[in-house]
C-alpha cells in the first residue's frame, strides 16, 4: 500500500520558517558581535575586546546611563507590581464574582490600552497632565506605565484563573475558611504561575516602552530607552551596541523565566 502523503507538510514552509528566524535574529546577533569590536569605527573589525562594556560602566557617559537604568528599573518594578495587583483583583471580579454592574464593559476597558495606538496614548497622557497642571517627571511616567501594563498582566493571570475550577475554594469554605482565607490560602497559591507570568510581562513591557515615556518624562528625566534614543540621534556609537546587547540579555532572561513560570503551572495541574 502506498504511504499516504503527509497532509501537514507543505513544500517550502520549513525553508520559510528558517528564513523568518534568520530575519528576526540576524540583526540582533550582528549587533551583539560588533559590541565586542576593539575599534573606534563601528564597522571595521579590529579584534575582540570588552572595551565598550568597560565604557558603558566606567566611561564618560556611564553616570547618565546608570541613572537612566535606575529610573527604568524603579519604574518597571513599581508599575509591574501595581499592574499585577490591579489585574489580579480584576480577574477575580471577572471570573469569580458572578455578574455585577458594568461587567460587560469591563473586559473592553481592561484591554483598551492595547487597542489605542501608543502614540495616541502618549499625546492624550501628556495633554492630560498639562491640563491639570501636573509637572511631568518620574510620577507621570509611572502612572502612564501602570495603565498600559494592566492588560499585559491581566491576560496570563485571567487565563490561569480560568483553568482553575472553583471546587478548591468551595472545599475550603465548606471547611469554614472565610472568603479571604479561601482566596489567600487556596486560590492565590494556585494562581502563582499566572501571577508571575503577568508580573514578568508587565515588567518587560514597562522596560521596553519608549514612545509614551518620551512624551510624559519631562525635562532631565531619562529612562534607558529615552537615553539610548537620545544618544542614537547623534549616530550609533559602539557603547550603544554594548548597552543594546546587555538589554537583549535581560529580555531573553525574562522571557525564559516567564516560560518556566508557565511550565511550572502546567506541571502542577
Amino acid at each position: 500500500m502506498a504511504k499516504k502523503p503527509d497532509l501537514r507538510r507543505f513544500p517550502g514552509f520549513y525553508g520559510i520558517t528558517l528564513l523568518c528566524l534568520f530575519l528576526l535574529y540576524a540583526p540582533l546577533i550582528i549587533v551583539a558581535i560588533y559590541s565586542f569590536n576593539d575599534s573606534q569605527s563601528i564597522t571595521i573589525w579590529g579584534g575582540a575586546s570588552l572595551r565598550w562594556y568597560e565604557d558603558v560602566f566606567w566611561g564618560l557617559e556611564a553616570d547618565k546611563f546608570k541613572q537612566a537604568a535606575v529610573n527604568s528599573l524603579t519604574i518597571a518594578v513599581t508599575a509591574a507590581i501595581a499592574a499585577t495587583i490591579i489585574a489580579t483583583m480584576a480577574a477575580t471580579a471577572m471570573l469569580r464574582a458572578g455578574s455585577f454592574r458594568g461587567k460587560g464593559a469591563s473586559f473592553a476597558l481592561i484591554n483598551l490600552p492595547l487597542m489605542v495606538p501608543e502614540i495616541v496614548t502618549a499625546v492624550a497622557t501628556l495633554i492630560f497632565f498639562s491640563a491639570i497642571g501636573f509637572t511631568t517627571g518620574i510620577m507621570t511616567i509611572l502612572v502612564a506605565h501602570i495603565v498600559f501594563c494592566i492588560p499585559f498582566a491581566y491576560l496570563p493571570i485571567a487565563a490561569r484563573m480560568e483553568g482553575i475550577e472553583d471546587v478548591y475554594e468551595q472545599a475550603a469554605q465548606d471547611l469554614y475558611a472565610t472568603r479571604w482565607e479561601a482566596f489567600r490560602l487556596v486560590l492565590l497559591p494556585l494562581m502563582m504561575p499566572g501571577i508571575i507570568s503577568g508580573f514578568l510581562l508587565a515588567f518587560i513591557i514597562s522596560l521596553d516602552d519608549f514612545i509614551i515615556t518620551n512624551f510624559v518624562k519631562g525635562a532631565g528625566v531619562e529612562t534607558l530607552p529615552t537615553a539610548i534614543f537620545g544618544a542614537v540621534k547623534q549616530g550609533i556609537k559602539p557603547n550603544i551596541m554594548a548597552i543594546s546587547t546587555l538589554l537583549l540579555l535581560v529580555s531573553i532572561l525574562f522571557v525564559t523565566l516567564s516560560y518556566f513560570a508557565g511550565r511550572m503551572g502546567q506541571n502542577r495541574q
Binding site: I86, S106, D166, L187
Partner: peptide, 16 residues
C-alpha cells in the same frame, strides 16, 4: 461563572 466572591465584583474591578 464561578461565584466564590459574589457581591465583590464592583470593589474588585474598581481599581482597574
Amino acid at each position: 461563572s464561578a461565584r466564590t466572591y459574589a457581591g465583590l465584583g464592583v470593589p474588585l474591578i474598581l481599581p482597574a
